[in-house]
Design a protein around this nucleic acid. Structure first.
Lengths: 200, 200, 200, 200
DNA sequence: CATGAATGAGGCTTCATTCAT
DNA sequence: GATGAATGAAGCCTCATTCAT
């Protein structure tokens, strides 16, 4: 899923599209707006992307790729106990998302894109794969913790991984609707309680 | 927020719209389709709803009201320890949602509707209020558990409530993308670990 | 052209329609509005009038009849020299129109109705007849003045009558666009100059 | 008020719209018809005009500008006594209008447009200004005649100017309804009588 | 007679996409 | 390659008119 944009222009379009989709929504964003924001002609977009739907998909893949990279890097850099590594990962993700908070609107657009029949297949598959990947990464950390004797070996690691991954979505979602909500602090509380409950 | 449809026809429209929005998405659904699905003329819809946006909002309020009612009923019926009540509530919600799983597409549409500038205010506010309400309900149960000496009194009940509420969204979301994913079982595992971590 | 409304309800509809056509224009007025303003049900209008176009025509005939009556009465009451009678008639008409100034919007609607292909025939004919009638009345007064030796016998009475009749339209039209314009005073100046130019 | 169309296509649209508005009326003319008559696609119109109302306004400004130009030219070319110049101007206007007689339907549409609430402001103001301009031009000629000792100095030049300007509207209006009516000849009679009545 | 709920034709407008320059 | 003028499908919505009650 490594779709790095080849041209600077291609990246400019992706960037503009991502911004606008996030801010106004996919439906409310016109190709003309994207082209204008990217500083190119209206027709040029079609030299790089097959159409509006394809552009959405490419924006998705682009962001997904960047997020995966970031996650892989931070995981690689992790050290210490499984608890520490889980906590570090949680922090890394919540922090990085909170940085460009408004880009979370994009994620919601991606979710909804999986509703529209014609686009569904692409996104549904991509999301399923993405969730499975992240769950697996987290589950591996949990299993590592079990192997090290940190965590209760009877716990269902897959299920717990799903909840942890889901909590990232869920807390950012609540932050989306509520300015006063602090997703990072909330997720830390969650981690603490979980780790306590997980203790061997 | 009790917006019960008065007329049978009004309800038929709401029903048709909800179905189609859930199945195809808001943008991909035309007013003509809704009218046809409701078995009425194209113009009749406008006698009951101000337009397409209004219809989405009313569908939202209708479903939200029904969900709130269901939650209130199930809470009222709860008994036993705080742990038991929390578990029962979690089960009730996950079960009821899993029943009409495809309606979850609607929720995603509502989320995204909060992105579109013109509709944003209505939905943003409604969702913020909704989340606050549900978090409060759960937090109250947690505090009750602390008062009863079941739970660790140092825990941040608000944060934990947010995570629990969020886990409903998050697990259903993953189930949306992955047929093989079992949100109810997963949430039960989550509850167990949480309750263990919460223990006084 | 005596189309007196038979029923009180019929007159109420005509009244409401006239008001609304004058205020908002024919196109911008809906049958629903007219019915509401007349205090009757939306369907009832069709028991008295064939449709919207017919209603416009009937409003026209109603007003035209009332104006003709008024003119005939004032002419009958006229006395004195031809100059005095012309002046009196001019004053009567300009005064009566200035009274319900906003109804002049109706006259413009009638003019334009003569543009729309399907309605054209009715209005075109009615207006042609109306103008011919008024021109004839004025021309008769002018010829009477000639017979009495007041006016220059070489003058083209028909042409002059047309101008006098036209000046009523024209000055009210300018008053329609310009609040500060005084059609009555202006028409009196016109009459004076005309009469001076007409003197035997 | 110099709104010359820049593109050939823009002018084609204006032309087509003017024709159709004049022939069928504004309300009875659809944007699709205009596009077809202009030989372009349905959507192209919106690249040049903001919408149907804007198109009407632009047609108005276009025609008004052309008429003003014509008037200014003919006035500049005038010579001789004030009486001769007034007569020449009267003839020039009536002649030029009679040439494209059917375009007079447009003027009526413009009048009525000043009735519709939302468009009113634009047209009302434009017409008020237009009338004031034309009255001023005529009044200046009359005052010139007074200065030259041709006309009675006690006459109200403004009022008379309003009547003269109005007579152009009024006589063309009557000609609109009556094929047999000769507005040019009629206006000449009017001028003669007026000039006689104006004589010093 | 009166009503007003229901209808559907028809209009305006938007916008993704194409293609000649 | 890049452009933006042009297109026309498609959607939302209004409203005159009908008809069962």
């Amino acid at each position: 899923m490594a779709n790095q944009p080849k041209t600077a222009k291609q990246e400019a379009i992706l960037h503009a599209a991502a911004q606008l989709f996030a801010r106004q929504g996919y439906a409310a964003t016109s190709m003309a707006q994207i082209a204008a924001a990217a500083g190119i002609g209206k027709g040029t977009t079609y030299a790089y992307f097959a159409g509006k739907e394809d552009l959405l998909l490419k924006v998705f893949q682009w962001h997904y790729g960047r997020m995966e990279d970031k996650l892989n890097v931070s995981i690689a850099a992790l050290g210490g106990t499984a608890s520490q590594r889980l906590t570090a990962m949680n922090d890394a993700i919540m922090t990085s998302w909170t940085e460009f908070k408004d880009l979370f609107g994009l994620v919601m657009e991606f979710w909804v894109a999986s509703t529209t029949p014609r686009i569904r297949s692409h996104f549904q598959e991509a999301f399923r794969g993405g969730y499975q990947h992240f769950r697996q990464v987290v589950a591996a950390l949990l299993e590592d913790g079990i192997a090290r004797g940190e965590f209760d070996p009877t716990v269902d690691t897959k299920a717990l991984a799903a909840v942890m991954v889901g909590s990232w979505d869920a807390l950012l979602l609540q932050a989306w609707f509520d300015e006063g909500f602090d997703p990072l602090a909330t997720s830390r509380v969650h981690m603490q309680v979980l780790l306590k409950g997980l203790a061997a």
